[in-house]
Design a protein around this nucleic acid. Structure first.
Lengths: 167, 167
DNA sequence: ATAAACTTTCATTTTTTTTTGAAAATTTAA
DNA sequence: TTAAATTTTCAAAAAAAAATGAAAGTTTAT
């Protein structure tokens, strides 16, 4: 396999993986492209490589920057903007975890807390509901706290965690 | 908040959370519904509660069973089938991890291995590509192995892990 | 200030995903 | 068997999500 083919395969695969995890395909593809680019890439070049429109590129770059995993870069004497991806994988994982926690898990926790707090009339049905949603709340809270902890480790948390887990 | 309202809110929220993680909304809703039901539910009742068609219910129940997190149940003297969800949350997490690993992570790993194995002509560009995809392969492999380990713990892995992490 | 270079926005179109529902298949009871 | 009850399948329709592209907005150089 030659370089161009490999690069393309990587970008396509990363895009598909993104879709399966609720991230829009183009967004994941742009991210993939930037991750394997040794230098910052212009919007024009992204459009060209991925065959997408200006609007699409602009919107998804914005989203990636909102996630904190893509940065704008200015080159001296160049008017247009260039983009780079966070290339440190620990840092990338930390940022993705933090965002997903903030955007998705925390709001879900809030709802779980609310619904598990109903004053049940003690029918078997209602008791089971309260019991199950309470357990779910505790579980998700623990998982989310774990993410927070991992986030604090920051450098090389994954390797450290693996060592711990493997004993 | 009363029971019916709480139940509905939970089902809607679980559905929305599913979508954000690449799981079809109805599938997540059916799962939510079964999780908080104290006894097995018929397809008819699922259709009724979620206001969905027979085909939709049938297909998503099948998908949930393929994931191994919903079971069919037969009641004596009853012709139709009833469904229950895996209610143990550790078991649920383990099954979801295993499936996502098998369906999504393992194939992605295979591609990462392939593309990182190109014989580079040692341009800076190609060197960076090989370097980055190799790092990504190692990272994803480690993360995936961690999931495997967690899976082995099976009972109460999350609590144990939290204890470890918190030191 | 003007205008060229470039980016963002958003109504419209396109694509993708999900849902429907009716026909086919299956299962069970008589 | 036959037929009633139930489930599955899948082509077509609907809904949701993503992409386009041109106009509006910004920025920078002169």
């Amino acid at each position: 396999m030659e370089f161009k083919e490999a690069k393309n395969k990587f970008v396509q695969t990363w895009g598909a993986l993104g879709s399966q995890w609720g991230i829009n395909k183009t967004m994941a593809q742009i991210h993939a492209l930037l991750m394997v680019s040794h230098e910052a890439v212009s919007m024009e070049d992204i459009m060209e490589e991925l065959q997408i429109s200006r609007g699409n590129a602009s919107m998804n770059l914005r989203a990636l920057m909102d996630w904190g995993i893509v940065y704008k870069e200015y080159k001296a004497g160049e008017r247009r903007e260039f983009f780079t991806a966070e290339k440190d994988l620990d840092e990338l994982a930390v940022k993705i975890s933090r965002e997903r926690s903030k955007r998705e898990i925390k709001p879900a926790l809030k709802v779980l807390k609310e619904v598990s707090a109903i004053t049940s009339d003690n029918t078997a049905e209602e008791k089971h509901f309260v019991d199950q949603t309470t357990k779910l709340y505790d579980f998700v809270l623990k998982a989310d706290n774990m993410l927070d902890k991992i986030t604090e480790y920051k450098d090389n948390w994954l390797a450290k965690l693996v060592v711990k887990i493997m004993k």
